[in-house]
């Protein structure tokens, strides 16, 4: 019988084969939501989608694109913003 705290479905279930040849379900935390563009709310590419503990161990260049507004705006909105500011 599943424990009461694990019935909610807020955690993802992974089936793992244990060394004693049994298949066991492990309960792990879900991935955070995809990063969105602040202007057009499109999914951002090149932004790491991991928990904070893993994010801490990653290099800065692997977390977000290394351009102005990287990780905040999508590439299209970045271009628009730069053009708007230059004129």
């Amino acid at each position: 019988m599943v424990e009461g705290k694990r019935k909610s479905g807020s955690k993802r279930k992974i089936k793992v084969r244990v060394p004693s040849s049994k298949s066991v379900t492990q309960y792990k935390k879900r991935k955070p939501a995809k990063a969105k563009c602040a202007e057009c709310s499109a999914d951002l590419k090149g932004v790491a989608r991991v928990r904070a503990t893993k994010l801490k161990k990653m290099p800065k260049s692997a977390k977000r694109p290394s351009r102005p507004f990287g990780g905040q705006l999508c590439s299209k909105c970045t271009r628009k913003e730069i053009v708007r500011r230059s004129k």
């Binding site: 351009r67 102005p68 271009r79 730069i82 500011r85 230059s86």
Partner: peptide, 10 residues
Amino acid sequence: CVKIAGRDAG
């Protein structure tokens, strides 16, 4: 010109 793409953008 102003560069609008890549790490030199802006």
